[in-house]
Design a protein around this nucleic acid. Structure first.
Length: 594
RNA sequence: GGUCGCGUAGCUCAGCUGGAUAGAGCAUCUGCCUUCUAAGCAGACGGUCCCACGUUCGAAUCGUGGCGCGAUCACCA
């Protein structure tokens, strides 16, 4: 069925029979729209082994192919390009083979193959989620779905950074100013409440520094000796010592945050299979480091600190344990990775969705795990993505210059409602249905906006200019899907008949659409190999554009010929299916109407 | 300074395992709703693909050297 495979063989055969030369490979590309043809053989590379004029060589191969390959009708040669015209029957047969296949494009997982664990989100528990987390979440979730579609077994996970000085800051501020406030009493989400105290801490801290400086103390000194900071440090010591009061407050406030996060995740449509808490895993890496030291993977310095020498790899030495024996960030990540494989022995690789400011950290982490000799260490991937910046610069929670995740989702939904109401196409929909639809569209716009760009690229997000709903956007694709569903609702006849390739002549628009549908499985594989939802987004856009052109150029339900009508409805349905599937990989829902 | 990433139309981005005249959307301007949803379609306008050199029949794509932007080079996480 794979035309390229067939052609490769046949072109080799042709070259062998005409020139008596064995070819290694043949280069194909889709024919440019300005020329007649569907697939093109590039002749230039052949000139290295075949002496002669590319025009003549092309024609000779073309003649042979028309003679010997059933699917090829005719050809033309322009410069060094051999354009082949494929017979309609090939496309129709292809379509018949996939039209009822609901898992078209998907690979079923090999039960023996190893699972892959995808980590994403991994927030601190002292402030609400913001736009940066949204990018992280969408990427991690989407890549998980894409990997599944490509036949991988996937576990979604996150590590929750629930310990450390940053948590204590919120806790201290709450103790000082909280007066027993709770999310219920304040009527706000728990993560927002805790976030407020984090900001409050920072304000107090800054004013204390000012006071100290006014009293004539050096700024650096003041920064280190501000009373509220000392209190936070004291609290961290108490926490590590298991102080009951502190631990109890920690538990209460963390729970508020988890509840708040849960709401945000639910709205965003992401979820996790397994959770890891830093408070449970931060000590794990120490044993591994001790063992690695024994085996000579690490070296110990005079002060007792332990290091990994990576100078052979062109990097520096990296600390894995402090001189006082406590764990650093790296220690914890080593431990967590190993723990995950212990918990889930079928895991054979991991994907870490973390911003690109940590490129170096993960490079080192992966090297260390490899040095420690874990076989899965070859299958680690850092899904590194660029920051989301505002026109005013970086987002900083402490300074309140963030785009809050909940607020943004709400705004997108409201914009969707305004547009939708203006167009007024939802007659007969209940309030609830409309509300759901507006959310679907608003989030569709947001998710597509973020996922369509290459993860590596930095995104500049301007809250003043709202995310578009027209053009290359989520709603555009959702709209096309709704159009297709409308056609299917109106097609009140049996369109399940298989259209015979015999005697059916494809309209140009039908053919272009079929070619686009044909690309789908390959796109999924590419997206999975590159860990890039952007591949899926861009493909879906191309497919959608092609469909809209088809839709506006030729009648579907209105066409005279019954066979044509059935075929076009079938084709429309298939395009709708592919759109829905693609969007599912992006975590975007598609509407019946809009 | 070393390392990594990015640099394509006024703006946002595709294209990057080398191929024909570099593609979309937004914005600006023209047409198209008494036929299947106009959140649409068709068209116009808009380009030193950051610069230079090199490899090649052929370079936005590969290599080297620059320039610009960002990140990173903590006994912070």
């Amino acid at each position: 069925m794979d035309i390229q495979g067939v052609l490769t063989t046949k072109v080799k055969e042709a070259v062998n029979s005409i020139f008596h030369i064995k070819l290694e490979s043949v280069e194909f590309q889709p024919t440019r729209k300005d020329f007649e043809g569907d697939i093109t053989v590039v002749i230039f590379p052949l000139l290295k082994v075949i002496k002669g004029n590319p025009q003549v060589i092309g024609e000779q191969i073309g003649d042979y192919l028309v003679e010997n390959v059933e699917e090829i009708n005719r050809f033309n040669v322009i410069k060094g390009f051999l354009n082949l015209v494929i017979d309609d029957s090939f496309y129709i047969n292809f379509f018949n083979s996939i039209k009822s296949d609901e898992s078209y494009g998907l690979l079923t997982p090999d039960p023996k193959s190893k699972a892959i664990m995808v980590e994403y989100s991994s927030p601190n528990t002292n402030k609400p989620l913001h736009l940066g987390h949204i990018r992280n979440n969408l990427l991690g979730y989407s890549v998980s779905e894409i990997l599944k579609a490509a036949g991988r077994k996937v576990y979604k996970t996150q590590i929750i950074n629930d310990r450390g000085i940053h948590i204590c800051k919120s806790m201290v501020a709450y103790q000082k100013f909280g007066k027993g406030e709770t999310p219920e009493l304040a009527g706000i989400k728990g993560d927002k409440l805790v976030g407020n105290y984090y900001v409050k801490f920072d304000k107090t801290y800054k004013s204390e520094i000012e006071t100290l400086v006014a009293e004539g103390i050096e700024k650096k000194e003041a920064e280190q000796s501000a009373p509220i900071l000392l209190e936070a440090q004291e609290m961290l010591r108490k926490w590590e010592a298991g102080d009951e009061e502190v631990v109890s407050l920690w538990k209460t406030m963390n729970q508020w945050v988890y509840d708040g996060f849960e709401t945000t995740y639910k709205n965003l449509g992401v979820d996790f299979d397994y959770l890891y808490y830093e408070s449970n895993t931060y000590l794990l890496g120490k044993d591994v480091v001790a063992e690695g030291l024994k085996r000579g993977v690490f070296i110990q310095k005079d002060d007792g600190s332990v290091w990994c020498d990576l100078t052979d790899e062109g990097l520096d030495e990296k600390i894995v344990l402090r001189s006082d024996g406590t764990a650093v960030y790296m220690t914890q990540d080593i431990g967590t990775a190993i723990q995950r494989v212990k918990d889930h022995p079928d895991v054979g690789g991991m994907v870490y969705t973390v911003g690109n400011e940590q490129d170096y950290h993960f490079k080192v982490l992966f090297l260390i795990l490899k040095k420690l000799g874990y076989d899965w260490a070859d299958n680690l991937y850092h899904l590194s993505y660029g920051m989301v910046d505002l026109p005013s610069g970086k987002m900083k929670s402490r300074e309140g210059t963030v785009v809050d995740a909940d607020d943004l989702m709400l705004e997108m939904t409201q914009t969707a409602r305004e547009i939708s109401e203006e167009l007024g196409k939802l007659e007969g929909y209940t309030k609830t249905e409309k509300k759901e639809l507006h959310k679907m569209i608003g989030l569709g716009a947001l998710k597509y906006y973020i996922l369509k760009v290459d993860p590596k690229k930095r995104i500049l997000f301007n809250p003043e200019e709202s995310v578009d709903f027209a053009g290359n956007t989520g709603p555009f694709i959702q709209y096309t899907y709704a159009r297709i569903q409308s056609i299917l609702r109106k097609a009140d006849f049996d369109y399940s008949t298989i259209i015979s390739a015999e005697g059916y002549q494809l309209h140009q628009k039908e053919k272009e659409l079929l070619k686009q549908v044909q690309l789908f499985p390959e796109v999924i594989q590419n997206a999975a190999e590159n860990y890039s939802p952007a591949f899926i987004a861009n493909y879906t856009y191309d497919l959608t554009k092609e469909f809209n052109s088809f839709y506006q150029s030729i009648p579907i339900l209105g066409v005279e010929d019954n066979i044509q009508k059935i075929f076009r409805v079938q084709l429309s349905k298939k395009v709708g299916d592919v759109i829905a599937l693609s969007f599912r990989f992006l975590g975007i829902e598609v509407p019946e109407r809009m």
